[in-house]
Amino acid sequence: NDEAKKEAEKLWKNNKSEDEIKERLERAGISPDEAEQWLQELR
């Protein structure tokens, strides 16, 4: 999970869309709710 979150953070810094980041997190096995929460922390 931490690995996926690091990846999400990297994508965020590269200005990827939130949808793309969420999709990537969900593919890594993170629930949509958790993915949404993680994005809010990044904002």
Rank of each mutant, 00 (worst) to 15 (best):
D2H: 12
G29T: 02
P32K: 11
K22G: 00
R43W: 08
K13I: 08
E41Q: 13
W12F: 11
R43S: 03
L42T: 03
E23A: 12
K5G: 01
A28K: 05
D19T: 11
E9A: 12
I30C: 05
S31F: 03
R27H: 09
W12Q: 00
Q40K: 11
E3A: 12
E23D: 09
K10P: 01
E20D: 05
A8S: 03
A35W: 08
E34A: 07
K16L: 12
E34H: 04
R24N: 08
K10C: 15
L11R: 01
K22I: 09
E18A: 10
K16W: 13
E36T: 06
Q37G: 04
E9H: 11
D2V: 12
S17K: 05
R24Q: 13
W12I: 01
G29S: 02
K6T: 07
D19E: 13
E20Q: 06
E26T: 13
E3R: 09
L11T: 02
L39P: 00
E34M: 14
N15E: 04
E20V: 06
Q37H: 06
S17P: 06
I21A: 02
K13W: 12
E23K: 10
E3G: 08
A35K: 01
R27D: 07
R43D: 01
E18R: 06
L42N: 01
N15F: 10
K22F: 07
L39A: 02
D33K: 11
L11F: 05
E7A: 07
A8L: 07
L25K: 00
G29A: 02
L42C: 06
E9W: 15
A8C: 15
L11M: 15
R27S: 11
N15H: 10
A28D: 06
P32D: 06
K22Y: 06
W12H: 03
L25N: 01
E23V: 06
K16Y: 14
Q37I: 09
K13S: 07
E7S: 05
Q40E: 10
R27L: 13
R27V: 07
A8N: 03
R43K: 11
D19P: 05
S31R: 06
A4W: 15
K16V: 15
L25A: 03
R43T: 03
K16E: 07
I21G: 00
P32W: 10
E26D: 06
A4F: 09
A28V: 06
E34Q: 14
E41P: 00
L25M: 07
K16N: 07
R24M: 15
K22R: 14
R43L: 06
W12V: 00
Q37E: 09
D33I: 10
N15M: 06
E9S: 09
N1H: 14
I21H: 01
E18P: 08
E9P: 00
G29Y: 02
A4E: 04
P32Q: 08
K10S: 08
L39G: 00
E9G: 05
S17E: 04
E23I: 08
A4R: 07
R27P: 03
A28H: 10
W38K: 01
E3L: 11
A35G: 01
E34F: 05
Q37R: 13
A4T: 06
E23Q: 12
E20N: 03
N1C: 15
D33H: 10
S31K: 08
N14V: 05
D2M: 13
S17F: 04
I21W: 06
E34D: 06
L42A: 03
K16H: 14
D33F: 11
N14L: 13
K13D: 03
K22C: 07
E20T: 04
L39Y: 04
A35D: 00
E26G: 09
S31W: 03
E7P: 02
E23P: 00
A28G: 06
A8E: 01
E26W: 14
E34V: 14
P32S: 10
P32R: 11
Q37Y: 05
N15T: 03
L42K: 05
I30V: 11
G29H: 01
W38R: 01
R27Q: 13
A35I: 15
E20F: 12
N1K: 15
A8D: 01
E41S: 12
E34G: 02
K16R: 11
K10Y: 12
R27C: 12
E7W: 14
E26H: 13
K13Y: 11
A28M: 15
E41C: 15
L42D: 00
K16G: 11
N14R: 05
L11V: 02
K5Y: 14
I30Q: 01
I30Y: 08
I21Y: 03
E20P: 02
L39S: 02
N14S: 12
E36S: 08
D2W: 14
E23G: 07
R24P: 03
R43G: 02
D2A: 12
L39N: 00
K13Q: 10
E9I: 13
E26N: 08
S17R: 04
L39R: 02
G29I: 01
E9F: 14
E26S: 12
E26Q: 13
N14H: 07
S31G: 07
E18K: 05
K6V: 06
D19H: 09
G29K: 01
K6G: 04
E23R: 12
K10R: 14
L25S: 00
E7N: 04
E7T: 08
K10Q: 11
K13M: 10
K6M: 09
W12T: 01
I30S: 02
D33L: 11
D33C: 13
N14G: 08
E26K: 13
R27E: 10
E9D: 04
K5S: 02
W12D: 00
P32Y: 06
E18H: 09
P32A: 11
I21T: 02
W38Q: 00
A8F: 07
E20C: 14
R43H: 04
R24V: 15
S17I: 04
G29F: 02
K6P: 03
I30L: 10
E36I: 06
N14Y: 08
E3S: 10
D2E: 12
P32V: 08
K10I: 12
I30K: 02
Q37N: 07
Q40I: 10
D2T: 10
D2R: 10
Q40V: 09
E26Y: 15
L42M: 09
A4Q: 06
E3F: 11
